[in-house]
Write a protein that binds this DNA or RNA. Structure first.
Length: 323
DNA sequence: GGCACAAGCCGCCAAA
DNA sequence: AATTTGGCGGCTTGTG
C-alpha cells in the first residue's frame, strides 16, 4: 500500500512504438509544463524510451526522447501512453514498471498503455480500464485483470488506468488532486481550460460511467426517455417501448450501454438535476419534480449515495453566478 | 435514520 | 447442436 501525502515530484513518461500523440500530449501538458510561476507544482519531467531510441509516433513523425529508462527508477509517477499493442513490450520496460510499482510509485496508463501494465503483471487481480474498443482484448490477454469498460479511469492501489484519449486528463487531474489537493487540481484544470471540473474534493464526480456509445436498437427508446425524464419510468415501461421482455431488455441494455437500465435512468436524472442546480434558480422540490425523482427526499438520497453530498451543498459549490 | 414494501438485478434453466 | 429468449427466485437497492 502506498502512503498518502507522498510527494509527487519526479514524473517519467514511457513512449513505446506507435505512441499516440494526443495522449502523450495530455501527459506532457499535465506534468511537463512548468506552471510554478502560478503557484502550481512543477515536476521533474522525463520523456523516456528504452535505450532512449527515437520513437515513431502514431501520426507518422518521429520523436526523440532525451532519456533512456533511467529516470523511471527515481520516478514517483510512471505513465505509459497508448502504443502498438501487437508488439511485445521490452523486458527492461516491464522490469522498470514492476520496480516502480513495488516501491510504491504511481503507475499510470492512458488508453492502450494498460496493455504494457498488464504485460508487467501489474493488472493481475486489479480493477482497471482502457479504451472501450480495447476492453475485450485487454480482458482476453490478461485474464486475471478485472477490466471495467464503463469508467473513465480506475484507481486500484497505486495503479491508475484510464480510458481513451481525453479520459487521461480526468485521470491525471484525479492524481494531482490526490497528491496536491483539490485546490491545486482545480487551478490546473482551469489553466488547461478543461470544462469546469466538478472538483469539490469529491473524485467520484468524475468517475461516472461513460455515456452509452452505440445503442443500435435501444437508441430511440433512450432518446425518448431522455426527453421525458420528468415522467415516471420503470424498467418494465422502457422494455415495453423497446418491444422486449424486461429480461431481454435488461440484457441488451447492459450489452449496449454497459449499465443496467435503472442505473442509467438514475444517472440521467442526476445529470439533469446537477445541471438545474448549477444554472437555474429552481428549488430542490421543483428540481426533483423536473427530473422525475418522486420527491426531494429521493433526490437527496441519490446525491448522498452517488456524490456524497446534498443538492444544496452541490449548488453552493458549483452554481454559475451571473457576472 | 430506519422501516416496510416495491422494484430492480442477475444466475439459472427451460423453451424456442 | 448452438444461441437467444424470457420466466423464476433470491438477493440487493430504491421509495415513501
Amino acid at each position: 500500500m502506498r502512503t498518502l501525502g507522498h510527494m509527487l515530484k519526479n514524473v517519467a513518461v514511457i513512449a513505446l512504438p506507435d505512441v499516440a500523440v494526443f495522449e502523450l500530449g495530455v501527459l506532457c501538458e499535465l506534468f511537463g509544463y512548468d506552471r510554478s510561476a502560478d503557484g502550481l507544482p512543477a515536476y521533474n519531467f522525463a520523456l523516456c524510451s528504452p535505450g532512449g531510441v527515437p520513437i515513431r509516433t502514431h501520426a507518422g513523425f518521429t520523436l526523440t526522447p532525451d532519456h533512456d529508462l533511467a529516470p523511471v527508477e527515481q520516478a514517483d509517477l510512471v505513465a505509459v501512453g497508448p502504443y502498438d499493442t501487437q508488439r511485445e513490450v521490452p523486458a527492461e520496460v516491464l522490469g522498470a514498471l514492476r520496480r516502480a510499482h513495488d516501491r510504491g510509485a504511481w503507475v499510470m496508463s492512458v488508453c492502450t498503455g494498460a496493455f504494457a501494465l498488464g504485460a508487467a503483471g501489474l493488472l493481475d487481480g486489479r480493477r482497471c480500464t482502457t479504451h472501450w474498443r480495447h476492453a475485450d482484448a485487454l480482458a482476453d490477454r490478461f485474464p486475471a485483470a478485472k477490466v471495467d469498460p464503463n469508467v473513465l479511469y480506475v484507481v486500484d492501489d497505486n495503479v491508475l488506468t484510464s480510458a481513451g484519449t481525453a479520459a487521461g486528463i480526468d485521470a491525471g487531474l484525479h492524481l494531482v488532486r490526490a497528491e496536491h489537493g483539490s485546490v491545486v487540481a482545480t487551478q490546473l484544470a482551469r489553466r488547461m481550460v478543461v470544462p469546469p471540473h466538478r472538483d469539490g474534493g469529491q473524485a467520484q464526480f468524475i468517475e461516472t460511467p461513460v455515456a452509452p456509445y452505440q445503442c443500435e436498437t435501444l437508441q430511440p427508446v433512450l432518446e425518448h426517455v431522455l426527453e421525458t425524464l420528468d415522467r415516471a419510468h420503470t424498467v418494465d415501461t422502457m422494455a415495453e417501448m423497446a418491444h422486449m421482455a424486461p429480461r431481454t431488455f435488461a440484457r441488451k441494455f447492459r450489452a449496449e450501454t454497459g449499465a443496467t437500465p435503472h442505473d442509467w435512468l438514475i444517472g440521467q436524472r442526476m445529470l439533469l438535476a446537477r445541471r438545474l442546480l448549477e444554472d437555474s434558480e429552481l428549488g430542490v422540490d421543483a428540481i426533483a419534480a423536473r427530473t422525475g425523482f418522486g420527491s426531494a427526499a429521493t433526490l437527496r438520497h441519490h446525491f448522498a449515495h452517488r456524490l456524497s453530498t446534498t443538492p444544496q451543498a452541490y449548488r453552493s459549490t458549483f452554481k454559475i453566478r451571473a457576472a
